[in-house]
Design a protein around this nucleic acid. Structure first.
Lengths: 194, 194
DNA sequence: TTTATTCTAGAATGATTATTTTAATTCATG
DNA sequence: CATGAATTAAAATAATCATTCTAGAATAAA
């Protein structure tokens, strides 16, 4: 009932993503986020219990967006497609990509985060694990810790490392060589699966 | 003349490295650094003009230490040896490695840093560039921007990405597979040199 | 011993910023 | 129209730190 809200969760999450992309986590003060969204600082606390809760939600938002584009390929066992999807998602969503790839979960979440957000984050991590396991199974490889770590490097960490310099420099689109390096690195790593 | 100093630059630099390794840059407050070194906070300002200057020096200390172990191999054109040296240095110096590999220069240096530190940082970056160029020349490859970026990924960013999960988890020594992945990724990337 | 200088010591200051509080506004419903 | 819950709005509060200040201690040289 009653008054229609002028701002919703997403307004603040998107403002936070924008600010973090431009100036890192330190630039995303509550005052700056409010200003960027066109709201007074107090209003944020009607949506989020704390700064950690807000930045954690922004982090989840970005991870979930990326994951949605990658997981289907993993389920099918198509590692090249998964890497290509990651590269394309990064080009299409530079701000969100910068958030995920240039910073770490720890840069956003300090103290306690709300239980539901915690569950969401656990859920997405579990999904990622499941995806990597699916890839291994499609390739008839053991689900050992070593193999999962290897697959994680091949699909995520390696390609991300290849793109990082370009993300940092805000080059709109990484040169071809960067994509090739990401793919070559991924393939070479998967060769090591046992 | 006069009174002998009780603390020197290195005492504070090492304390900062220790604290950052344990709790990230945010844990390295001036008070914490002083306590860790057994000095009062005020004393730090007799050595460093600001927190940025101190953390910047810590960053330089770590980069210089690592570089010293890697560069000779690059000059000789031995890419595998360079990567192996990086892996070994990381195992032997986990705290310094965490500083370099888990965080970025931006996490330490906010505002202005002293001119001499700035020069030191420029110097080390130039050395790294020279090292990579030497590697390319030994392999009879062009000194193009694309090739240098590729070599940088092959020698540094790729292997670092492979070790990151273990650094984060504070596993004392990365499993064999991680080393193999780093080498495989580096070799595959260098295959792409033109 | 005296003195000038560099240092330790730790409390005081000031700036930044997350969070809380209080007051005013809005609008679906009865 | 009047009500009152949900919201906006912005000022007040409180906590955290980097930095500065003031005082006292140490020591090499005069």
């Amino acid at each position: 009932m009653v008054r229609k809200a002028q701002f919703d969760d997403n307004d603040f999450i998107l403002a936070a993503i924008e600010l973090i992309s431009l100036g890192g986590p330190a630039a995303a003060t509550m005052a700056a986020i409010a200003k960027c969204a066109g709201a007074p600082t107090g209003s944020i606390y009607h949506r989020f219990s704390s700064r950690s809760a807000l930045l954690g939600s922004a982090w989840f938002h970005c991870i979930a967006a990326m994951t949605g584009d990658i997981l289907p390929h993993l389920s099918l066992g198509h590692n090249d497609d998964a890497i290509i999807a990651l590269l394309q998602w990064t080009e299409a969503n530079p701000a969100k990509a910068r958030l995920i790839m240039l910073y770490g979960e720890n840069d956003f979440i300090d103290g306690e985060i709300p239980t539901d957000l915690h569950k969401k984050l656990n859920g997405i991590n579990k999904k990622l694990g499941t995806g990597l396991s699916a890839l291994l199974q499609k390739k008839n490889k053991a689900l050992s810790a070593a193999n999962i770590a290897l697959a994680n490097f091949a699909i995520f960490d390696g390609p991300i490392a290849a793109m990082k310099p370009y993300l940092r420099a805000r080059k709109p689109s990484p040169p071809l060589k960067c994509h090739e390096a990401a793919l070559a690195c991924g393939r070479a790593s998967l060769e090591l699966l046992e």
